[in-house]
Design a protein around this nucleic acid. Structure first.
Lengths: 198, 198
DNA sequence: CCTACCGATCGGTAGG
DNA sequence: CCTACCGATCGGTAGG
């Protein structure tokens, strides 16, 4: 592998980062290849020496994130901890992803529906797989009596949505403070012991 | 006001609804006026007899939602209830909005950044106003010792994000069941009494 | 409400 | 990596 290959790799990385940034800021559809080219200081046509298409950029961003989430989940499952600990690890995984790859994760979350059809199927499949593991942990915690909720699917959606708040808060709060507050909020919300509503 | 005006009003309503639906499904930028025209059975140019521009459609959808949220908040403030009750009323307001106008609210939440600049300023101002009232209620609950959290701004963001889960769940759960589960989750999360994390 | 049409911009390619 | 260019589609208008 020569110097040009390494240079090209760096360029590609640079383009991918710029794309994630623009897709985050304007959305995938409203970002043109002209904008992207301009933001890395190239002509439009030169971009295509490094990538195949606009859709490919989105694909690479989304599938890289999907892979990281799935790896994270696999590790959590292998740890064989109790559901309470596993849930906390999942929440940490999401917050870590938000802090480590804020723009990629935003694109992953908000722009995946613009993936080309064949990739879209793969993406949805992987998400289903991830969600299945997540829900299983919730179900186990419920069966052992440590989680209190009526509908697993509903609480799963609530949790997923709640933790997404970190994607918009990366720049505003130090990570450890955010983790602590989210974990407190969620663990109380899910381990509720008594009625406090009228 | 003649029959044609009423007809035109209906048409405009029809176009607005179709726009909200398409903006929800594809996003604002990826929705073309051709798609929209097709979905209401008109030629593109005929759309412009009823509306001024694509941006105007987005403006109308977003500002109508903004107005409804602000009215809702105004009522809650006038009720002069205790913060615990006020917070529950706010959560109900968001869930009601999600169930009553699922598509408009989705557009309001996800596409507002594509508003034309002058409207965008107004929109952001109104949102700040809403957020100020929301945070004030949280702050009052905290001062009276009924809410337990460290950072008002952070818990505000968590709550806002959490309640957004209802926007994606309208078709899946009956409203009253969803309200009950969300209120339980949130009220426990915010009134936590003791450490349950290691 | 439609036919016919506009300039601008889109993603992408040929060829060097 | 650039110059020059492509067909397709964009939001929108004129005129009836």
């Amino acid at each position: 592998m020569g110097v040009t290959d390494v240079k090209s790799l760096n360029r590609k990385e640079e383009i991918l980062r710029a794309a994630a940034s623009l897709f985050t800021e304007k959305g995938y559809s409203a970002t043109s290849m002209r904008h992207l080219a301009g933001s890395v200081g190239l002509e439009v046509s030169s971009i295509y020496s490094h990538i195949k298409s606009k859709e490919d950029l989105l694909t690479e961003i989304c599938m890289t994130c999907a892979h990281r989430f799935l790896s994270g989940m696999r590790e959590i499952l292998q740890a064989e901890e109790k559901p309470v600990v596993q849930l906390q690890l999942i929440l940490r995984l999401h917050i870590d992803m938000a802090y480590d790859y804020p723009e990629s994760v935003t694109v992953f979350n908000k722009e995946w529906r613009h993936l080309p059809e064949n990739v879209l199927h793969l993406f949805v499949d992987q998400r289903k797989q991830y969600e299945f593991s997540f829900k299983q942990i919730l179900e186990q915690g419920r069966e052992s009596g440590v989680f209190l909720f009526k509908d697993t699917d509903m609480i799963f959606r609530i949790l997923l949505q709640t933790v997404k708040f970190s994607y918009f808060s990366v720049r505003k709060f130090p990570k450890e403070q955010l983790i602590k507050e989210v974990l407190q909020f969620v663990m109380y919300g899910i381990q509720r012991q008594e009625e406090i509503l009228k």
